[in-house]
Amino acid sequence: MPSTEASTDTGTGPGSPTDEATGDTLDLRLSGELVALLGEGDPMAVTPPSDDARTGDLLDAPERWGPATTLAGVLQLVPVRVERDLALVSGWMNDPAVAAFWDLAGPAAVTEAHLRPQLDGDGRTIPFLGVLDGVPMSYWELYRADLDPLARHYPARPHDTGIHLLLGGAVNRGRGVGTVLLRAVADLVLDHRPRCGRVVAEPDLRNTPSVSAFLSAGFRFAAEVELPDKRAALMVRDRALRDLL
């Protein structure tokens, strides 16, 4: 179960909301392939999987959801491709602020070993680059929380959808970017997954910026949860409350 901490939020970990995410100040120039992928009318025309490959899709094909316009810019979730994105994502994972919660620092092979099971699996977890106004600046994982080991630790409901977020550069942290993007992606989930009544996350309780970012993004603190690798804050964004929080 991926750590939700240093990433999700705002700089500090998979869930660091006060902004976030972590990562070093890296050169975020787009590769030619990614530029081409984003430059055609529909950025999501990123070689989506065939209909046959999507049979039984567990997350309702988020690669087809399209961009979200936010106060921070236009966000596009682009499916991760190891051959194109490994160096970038591995660099972010080696940022000390991120490594403290994701525990994926080290050679690129460490990050690849984290990505491969998701990419080769049944689609219950999908990794994405968050591309903001054409610049890859964050790493996301969308996952079926009700089918994840997390479901053993809280009263999961069918189609609960989880979010992990990592902001990939100091320039994106501390300015509320994580909060804005968390709300936008949670809205994408609720808009495109009608069977999903809740979006959930589980940042480390120690990651106060992440917890704060989730709260500011319309999530509520539901419980403290003891997970195998951390004591987490179970954060929930309810469909029924999305217009109130």
Rank of each mutant, 00 (worst) to 15 (best):
M1N: 00
E5Y: 01
E5F: 02
D9Y: 14
P14F: 10
P17Q: 12
T18K: 07
D24G: 15
L26Q: 15
L28D: 11
R29Q: 11
R29N: 14
G32Y: 03
E33D: 15
E40N: 10
P43Q: 12
P48N: 12
P48E: 06
S50V: 14
D52N: 14
A53C: 09
T55K: 15
G56E: 15
G56D: 14
L58N: 05
L59V: 10
D60R: 05
A61H: 07
A61S: 07
A61V: 06
A61L: 05
P62H: 02
E63W: 09
R64G: 11
W65G: 12
A72G: 13
R84Y: 13
A87K: 14
G91T: 09
P96N: 08
A100W: 11
F101T: 02
L104M: 13
A105Q: 12
G106M: 13
P107R: 04
A109D: 12
A109E: 15
H114P: 00
L115P: 04
R116M: 13
P117G: 05
P117V: 04
Q118G: 01
L119N: 04
G121W: 08
G121K: 10
D122Y: 08
D122T: 13
R124A: 10
P127H: 00
V131G: 02
V131P: 05
V131A: 04
V131D: 01
D133S: 10
P136K: 02
S138D: 07
S138H: 08
L142K: 00
Y143M: 07
R144L: 06
R144I: 01
L147T: 00
P149E: 00
R152T: 00
H153P: 03
P155V: 02
R157M: 11
D160K: 06
T161Q: 07
T161E: 02
I163M: 10
I163E: 03
L166W: 03
L166R: 04
V171S: 12
R173V: 02
G176W: 09
V177A: 11
R183K: 12
R183P: 03
V185F: 05
A186W: 09
A186E: 02
D187M: 09
H192I: 02
V200Q: 04
E202Q: 09
P203F: 10
N207M: 00
V211P: 05
V211Q: 02
F214K: 03
L215C: 05
A217R: 00
G218M: 07
F221R: 12
F221L: 14
F221A: 09
A222N: 07
K230N: 14
A233G: 04
A233V: 04
M235E: 03
M235H: 05
V236R: 01
R239K: 08
L241D: 15
R242M: 09
L244A: 09
L244T: 14
